[in-house]
Nucleic acid binder design. Structure first.
Lengths: 135, 135
DNA sequence: CAAATAATCTAGTTAACCGATAGGATAAAT
DNA sequence: ATTTATCCTATCGGTTAACTAGATTATTTG
């Protein structure tokens, strides 16, 4: 299940991608337009800024703005920042790998091999889609 | 993230699929072989029986057994029973649909359309794989 | 019949996490 | 100096995941 955090984050990024000018947008504007809790969105955009997706400006006329062209912002890194691993199981995660407690031999594990397939097909979509494709 | 419940359930089913004879297997045997908590596996196999995947026999020589040939047991219904919706978001779920609170127009939602693609590619795998393919 | 076997059922515990909120600190513009 | 808007820390209620306890029921075997 996709967390609300990720869902809201993607929606906010898509909102910014839709704007042709690169003027900063205020949190409140996005929150209202997309029906997102203001305070919650605040923390989400903050993490997106700290991870290098967004720039920000304080004070009047301030807000958040995309640091790159929408077409150059792929979905997978956003997912990894907001949602965590893309794989359904840590033992097939490329960026968040963790060995299973059970399972002496990964290659012999039925679930492992199935989940590799799922990971690859999911990754194939997230890697090849940009913010520009979402709007 | 795949729950342990689903993971253990799939592993147990794969275990049974590997046996050529259709003799009942005891919970304890599977639990030990696959390093799964006995009591937890107990409740998992019970739900799988109630959903029609497994048959059971009580008393000596009893246990659980598959009701169909491994090649005739697809992954998707197992996932739906143990894990719930396959879609990452309720608004794109085929079997567990639910409207989003935010989002006045689904077709205009960036996340919605992205998640439809993910659902389809995932479903494509789960629908076309059987227990026999896992082993 | 009685003892052993193994599934069935009900219920509870514990820890982690999600979504949201509160309240003040900081920085920039007017 | 005042307003505007991000930044930051902390907290909290609710839910769920993962597991555990203990008693019951049904079946087989001696």
């Amino acid at each position: 299940m996709l967390s609300k955090k990720t869902k809201y984050g993607l929606k906010a990024l898509a909102y910014m991608a839709r704007l042709e000018d690169k003027q900063p947008v205020q949190i409140a504007t996005i929150a209202e337009s997309e029906n997102i809790s203001l305070k919650f969105l605040e923390s989400i955009l903050l993490t997106l800024r700290k991870s290098g997706f967004l720039g920000s400006k304080k004070g009047k006329g301030g807000g958040y703005y995309l640091l790159k062209e929408p077409k150059d912002i792929k979905i997978s890194p956003i997912m990894r920042i907001l949602e965590g691993p893309i794989a359904m199981v840590p033992c097939v995660s490329l960026n968040f790998y963790e060995k299973c407690d059970d399972c002496p031999d990964e290659n012999a594990c039925a679930v492992h091999n199935l989940m590799i397939e799922i990971r690859d097909s999911t990754l194939n979509i997230f890697n090849n889609k940009s913010l520009a494709d979402l709007i």
